[in-house]
């Protein structure tokens, strides 16, 4: 009898629709994390600080370091918690059509998660690819996220956006509610300030 009830509940649950207006492109691939604690770490950097340098493996196979952009480009760091989760899967595809925004402020975008490279490969492929480098903060696990004070107690990073100017100084550091997507309009305003 208990089994029958479980089956009935599973059947109802299978009919759940997305809560966050996710893309059809990810239908059936997204793991529903439920509502998470909005922020679960304490930021270790602030505006005006020198950004901690890092060197991480990227999807292209090269290692990319933050310091390599010094004197050349402003850098936007987009940390997202994890591949194949609800809000993250809809954040980077939006940046795909906003390349002009970054270009106008002479900025490069770096996307970072704590997932490993094969996972990031499959996930970004499902997005139809992205124009910006995607970096893996997988090993030592979440090391860069930890340096910035955005590693959650569960091993994912926060959903955070940082802007590092050409001098390597942090000009913007925003950790948003993990359950919500940051407004592109807010980032656009911050990028404008760089000009």
């Amino acid at each position: 009898m208990k089994k029958k009830w479980l089956l009935a509940i599973c059947f109802i649950c299978l009919n759940i629709s997305p809560v966050f207006g996710e893309s059809y492109a990810f239908k059936e691939y997204i793991f529903d994390t439920g509502k998470l604690k909005p922020v679960d770490s304490i930021l270790k950097v602030k505006i005006g600080d020198k950004a901690p340098d890092f060197s991480l493996p990227s999807l292209s196979g090269d290692k990319i370091s933050l310091s390599s952009f010094k004197g050349k480009k402003n850098v936007v760091l987009s940390f997202v918690p994890a591949a194949w989760t609800p809000v993250c899967s809809d954040q980077w595809p939006g940046y795909n059509i906003a390349q002009e925004l970054f270009k106008e402020s002479d900025s490069i975008l770096l996307g970072i998660t704590v997932d490993n490279i094969p996972t990031l490969y499959a996930w970004t492929k499902q997005m139809g690819g992205v124009w910006f480098p995607v970096l893996s903060d997988f090993w030592p696990h979440g090391n860069v996220s930890e340096k910035y004070g955005i590693l959650r107690s569960t091993g994912e990073s926060e959903r955070a956006l940082l802007i590092v100017d050409k001098n390597g100084i942090i000009r913007y550091a925003k950790v948003v509610d993990i359950n919500k997507r940051p407004d592109l309009g807010d980032l656009a305003k911050e990028l404008e300030k760089l000009n």
Binding site: G21, E22, S23, Y24, A25, D90, Q91, P93, G94, N96, I97, M127, G128, R181, L184
Partner: peptide, 12 residues
Amino acid sequence: QIFSMYCPNCQK
């Protein structure tokens, strides 16, 4: 049309 700027299929 229910869409999102962030959805790849909506862009396509």
